[in-house]
Design a protein around this nucleic acid. Structure first.
Lengths: 233, 233
DNA sequence: ATTATCTATAGATCTATAGATAATGC
DNA sequence: ATTATCTATAGATCTATAGATAATGC
């Protein structure tokens, strides 16, 4: 139950896997992380890496520990040895991917950076892959609950600091919601033309539309009640 | 395999279920639709109704046919008799809920109507419940594929007709994406303050921000490349 | 006699665990 | 001797089906 703190190490070489369980077709074990035999640290990192990819592709429920083990090129039992449970593995995957970007980006660039992360190819690890994991696993009621919500709160809080409006947090969350929705359409649904549109074009539209929402103090039209886009100037 | 075309009938009375499988705690069979014994039409409708609720609550994968049967107050085997498979049941649930609103709403009111549907309590059947089903089941790769995408296309197409821009379809899909994202945050994630915010307030923000995106022909700032909200007037 | 409903179960998963095996460090 | 890894399997699901039962219509 206790696994003596293992950090992922370097990510260099590559090597054929030794023994092995059954692999499904699209399972290519050990993409980036080297597979030295009997290297606990490396094995753990390989599992974490593979889990990110499989969760992102299939979602939490549909992904099986055997899928993950297969892609990592390790035995399925090691997942439980190193992470305890499938759920704990998901938690760790998300925690790792999410914090990464938040700390290293200044607030006023956070939204665009995150948006561009969503718009980039959802292949590489980090924020964009974590978003795919999030989107595909979100339906599973209690799968990713606290980790994910907490992370969202942090992003929203950082964004909210940009606005002086009294409902700045709401505004920030609306912006985050748009970001998630765009990710949903592109990464998960793949609806055209959005799915293949240029990141720059999407970015232009979204940032223009959000500009006043995120920066202004005054609400452009706030007589709450009948708010429609019918009225032309 | 062939089940002689049954329409759901009226929705009035209520009655205690007769025989019965095991029920989980929060399973209250037969909310709206009456349960006359040996009424195939009614039983089918009850299953459809219960499926909408359970799929919306738990998502496609986590929902089991026994959950659904339990809530409908019918035997689990009847689901396969009337719908063939769990997947076919999902398809029918979504198809029923989605088309409902699209036909009966004029295009220029479609977005606000749909948005207000998302913002309303996700309890009652129809669009808002279908959206919850969608959001919670979307991670399941091929669960709701064609029905859902086709429906989204129709909505986007109707919206796109409002704009004269050459990328009007992209703009419309961006708007739809926001709508989905907001639904995701409220219905599924339940992140505050967004989850409890007044529909009118959210509507005001969103419609204001989207106004130019959906109506204008010219793109406010379209030199695709470096588009940031840094530049203040 | 027809047909809606129920019982019982096949068959295929999937997570998780217990304990055997084998490669390293001493 | 330590510990990373593997084998084998318990135990708990879940979808789907085959066939029995029982309520209606004639």
């Amino acid at each position: 139950m206790d696994t003596s703190e293992l950090d992922p190490g370097e990510h260099q070489r590559r090597q054929d896997r030794p023994g092995g369980g059954p692999l499904s077709e699209d399972t290519r074990p050990g993409e980036d992380i080297p597979h030295r035999p009997r290297d606990a640290r490396g094995t753990r990192a390989r599992i974490l890496h593979a889990a990110g990819a499989v969760f992102a592709e299939r979602g939490y429920e549909a992904a099986t520990v055997r899928d993950i083990a297969g892609r990592a090129g390790v035995n399925q039992a090691l997942i439980f040895r190193y992470f305890g449970s499938k759920k704990a593995l998901l938690t760790e995957v998300m925690a790792q991917g999410g914090k990464q970007q938040l700390g290293s980006t200044p607030p006023d660039r956070l939204f665009e950076t995150a948006l561009r992360g969503v718009l980039a190819d959802g292949g590489k690890p980090g924020w964009d892959r974590m978003l795919a994991v999030y989107l595909r696993s979100i339906g599973s009621a209690d799968a990713a609950p606290d980790t994910v919500r907490a992370l969202g709160e942090e992003y929203a809080a950082a964004l909210a600091a940009l606005s002086s409006a009294d409902d700045s947090k709401l505004r920030a969350q609306l912006a985050m919601a748009w970001l998630l929705g765009i990710g949903l359409m592109r990464v998960v649904v793949g609806q055209e033309p959005l799915a293949s549109a240029e990141p720059d074009e999407i970015c232009g539209h979204v940032l223009t539309a959000l500009d006043s929402l995120l920066r202004d103090g005054e609400v452009p039209g706030d007589r709450a009640g009948e708010q429609r886009p019918d009225e032309r100037p």
